[in-house]
Design a binder for these strands. Structure first.
Lengths: 113, 113
DNA sequence: TGCAAATATTATTATATATGAATATAAAAC
DNA sequence: GTTTTATATTCATATATAATAATATTTGCA
């Protein structure tokens, strides 16, 4: 079981516009590097660098097919993260009705804001 | 409705060990700055800096109670992110059984890895 | 065997982020 | 009105991250 620290680290690795697009694309199926190169319109070395990072953190893996590397999703947290990321949220969370849990708060008091 | 770019940005803001702990604590209820200072054992200015960033991105808000600032969660995506982050995942995702969706792949071929 | 295709790695540089220290602000208490 | 308490802001610096360019590796194929 992964520590909370490791999970946050993973979140940081994933929280990048290009890498999110890569992962979202992998959600649909296996893809090779040159597919991403085209799809993302970024340089091949840069695609490889992002994939390398994702591999390093166990987020993706690949198999070889001739000289292609076919990448696929490996970490099961990824589909869940992508789902939350795409979900629509209509409202803000309800403001707390009463009484901070803080030891110092003396609510109810004036709400100045 | 928030763009996907904004969502990824938000994810990046959230993907920090201290800020995750702050948010996880706010999940339990309202807290003020000095509570965090104690709980996180980091300096007051640093707590304020993290809270400032979270405010800037609409993740949290606060009300004033005397000279205390009582912070609370505002963005509804946060509980969902925290839930995914805490969830236990037992297995890796199943490796793709067949046939890359890539235009270049010629699978089935030898799986070298 | 040598060439071309697909991908990876390394080095460099620019930029962003994080933290600590110092200072500022704002409200309450006296 | 001055002091104290709670919090915010600013500045400086260290560190991490990102992208580009150049080069290396690996594999299939002529």
């Amino acid at each position: 079981m992964r520590s909370i620290g490791k999970r946050v680290e993973l979140l940081r690795v994933v929280a990048h516009p290009v890498r999110i697009r890569i992962l979202d694309e992998l959600l649909k199926g296996v893809k090779c590097v040159s597919d991403f190169e085209e799809f993302l319109s970024i340089s091949q070395p840069n695609v490889s660098q992002h994939l390398s990072l994702l591999r390093q953190y166990g987020v993706v893996d690949y198999y070889m097919d001739g000289r292609l590397r076919c990448y696929f999703l490996k970490d099961p947290i990824i589909p869940d993260i992508l789902e939350v990321l795409k979900k629509d949220y209509m409202e803000e969370l309800p403001a707390p009705a009463c009484c901070p849990v803080t030891k110092k708060g003396t609510y109810p008091g004036e709400r100045r804001r």
